[in-house]
């Protein structure tokens, strides 16, 4: 058992040394693999980073009810009681035109704006939180509320967020598809690398077989070579996306601030990194195993 482990350690070390000793050839295939891996990885991080934010937007859909500018207190009271009596309405908050103006000043740093205006151009508004989350019912409620007396319009705040959510879903599917496609590419590229290696070591394999090497013994260094290649490619891809996230984040923050939101792309968690390295390692070994099974059979003796 100890010997078995020792042999594996030896193979692992020799394979790594081999990759590091011929940096140019292995660097090319490593770079190719890592660039291919970095693409779905960056998409994944983009989706994961925005998802919580988009989810928050869509999870609490609100309908803003803007009153006519000429609406009187009596009209407000009528709408308020009608909303209070509506079973489809969960809660209502009232934002008076004065509050809205003050909020606008504060948010945008426009102190003294109110003083410059002859009259407040903003309407009174009710922010309605509906009971349902179902898009169809929300739309019906929106129509119903817009029909209330002295209501100028009922805006469904979540509609644009829903569109965004849909887009994120689309990108997420794209990520899965790309991930699968490039996982396959990883298998095929390692298959090819190992095939070339086996052909280059044909003599050594033949002699080793003749003097009693088992198939496992012969396969082992190639599998380790593939394992390292997969792991190194994963690490480089991780570095590439880390760099991408770091350079993209200032722009993302700026964009999010336009909507008064905090948004940042994140990098992989340690768990995600480990999972990814495990996946690239296993896929690479799969490619190597397929290549080894196919080509070792062609070398005498059988």
């Amino acid at each position: 058992m100890k010997h078995f482990l020792y042999l594996h350690l030896l193979s692992a070390r020799q394979a790594l040394v081999k990759i590091l000793r011929q940096p140019f050839g292995s660097l090319l295939s490593l770079l190719m693999l890592s660039v291919a891996l970095a693409l779905p990885l960056a998409l994944y991080l983009g989706v994961e980073s925005t998802q919580a934010w988009v989810g928050k937007l869509t999870a609490t859909p609100q309908i803003s009810l803007f009153m006519e500018l000429s609406a009187e207190d009596a009209d407000l009271a009528a709408v308020k009681s009608s909303l209070a009596g509506n079973p489809k309405v969960k809660s209502v908050s009232f934002v008076s035109k004065a509050e809205a103006l003050a909020g606008l000043e504060k948010r945008n740093g426009l102190d003294g704006l109110a003083a410059d205006l002859d009259s407040n151009p903003l309407p009174d508004a009710f922010v309605v939180t509906p009971v349902t989350l179902e898009p169809g019912e929300l739309e019906m409620l929106q129509k119903e509320l817009s029909g209330l007396p002295m209501v100028e319009s009922a805006q469904f705040d979540a509609s644009w967020a829903k569109r965004l959510y849909g887009m994120v879903e689309l990108v997420r599917h794209l990520t899965l598809f790309l991930g699968a496609a490039l996982g396959l590419a990883l298998v095929l590229v390692t298959h090819n690398t190992i095939r070339m290696q086996i052909l280059a070591h044909r003599d050594e394999i033949e002699v080793s077989k003749l003097i009693g090497a088992s198939d496992n013994f012969i396969r082992r260094p190639f599998l380790y070579h593939a394992l390292w290649q997969g792991i190194l490619a994963g690490l480089i891809a991780w570095g590439l996306t880390g760099w991408l996230v770091a350079t993209a984040n200032p722009a993302v923050r700026e964009f999010a601030q336009l909507y008064n939101e905090q948004l940042e792309l994140r990098t992989l968690t340690p768990f995600e990194l480990l999972a990814m390295l495990a996946a690239t390692g296993v896929l690479a070994m799969l490619g190597a195993r397929l290549a080894a099974n196919h080509h070792l059979r062609q070398i005498e003796p059988h």
Partner: peptide, 11 residues
């Protein structure tokens, strides 16, 4: 066939 290499190890 998979056992033959071990025979060869004694030869």
């Amino acid at each position: 066939p998979s056992q033959l290499p071990y025979v060869r190890q004694h030869i």
